[in-house]
Design a protein around this nucleic acid. Sequence first.
DNA 1: TTATTCAAGGACAAATCTGTCTTAAAAAAA
DNA 2: TTTTTTTAAGACAGATTTGTCCTTGAATAA
Lengths: 142, 142
Amino acid sequence: MFSKACEYGIRAVLFIAKQSQKDLRPNITEISKAIDSPEPFTAKVCQQLARAGILLSKKGPNGGFYLEKDSTLKLAEIVATIDGDNIFKGCGLGLRECSSEHPCPVHDQFMVVRNGLKKMCENTLVMELAANLEEGETFLKV
Amino acid sequence: MFSKACEYGIRAVLFIAKQSQKDLRPNITEISKAIDSPEPFTAKVCQQLARAGILLSKKGPNGGFYLEKDSTLKLAEIVATIDGDNIFKGCGLGLRECSSEHPCPVHDQFMVVRNGLKKMCENTLVMELAANLEEGETFLKV
DNA sequence: TTATTCAAGGACAAATCTGTCTTAAAAAAA
DNA sequence: TTTTTTTAAGACAGATTTGTCCTTGAATAA
Ligand code: FES
Ligand code: FES
């Protein structure tokens, strides 16, 4: 479904969001421990998200990655930045483009599923997911 | 969503199904022309499906790939053979396994989408999709 | 000012996915 | 039997994804 980079990216952002709510600014070592991911690869992904303006970063002692406490970041922005929007727009059978004028055999059924995924990513706030994480109701590793 | 191999695989099977309804047995050249895919790569995929018993094949002059006319093959079998069933069972954020006892932050929402995809693949008959194809209502290339 | 701590960036390596080529083997037709 | 047509199979090559390593430069603290 999502690429590894995207999976790590979402998990990293959720952890960073949780820490940001406590005014903490985790560094890459802390992040990759918390989400159980390869550290240098995770660093790449976080850098990419920071370049895209999705994460904020601060260098130097006590630096790290963080989010504004009142961020309205949604899952969809993370996914689109890392994996592009083919997953939200592309044809399920790989035709050059998905359109009801030139539909593939599964177009009607696939649109329903794909739009469900899209809506889910567009409606889900990172800060809300991070709150459940804080309650210990959900997990980022194992 | 699906791998390239799986996209080609589904399109190939749908074309083969359509031809089988007309008692034809297309060979690899005809198949890859009909679905606009790289011929040797498509051959690999069709061989894999034939080994798995999903497609039938016949060597020699006038040979090719085919399906029984009354086949009840469903999309899910093609997908599981080529891409495995992680897409139907795996965690959206890449945790080792998806379970409501140890859910990731998007578990509840993701389950809905993933089950939608699963149901779609399990309920869709290849022969029915091939019939629409025959009517010229849907397309396998461009 | 200097040393330390950190993100940023780029070069590299391994693994997987995608795609190609060649040869073998089966089956039918000549 | 011989030739032709076809799938089957495996070795190979390129591209992409995943993962590692090392250097640079920014920011802070001492
Ligand atoms: S054309 Fe294939 S999903 Fe729309
Ligand atoms: S645990 Fe992640 S989707 Fe179920």
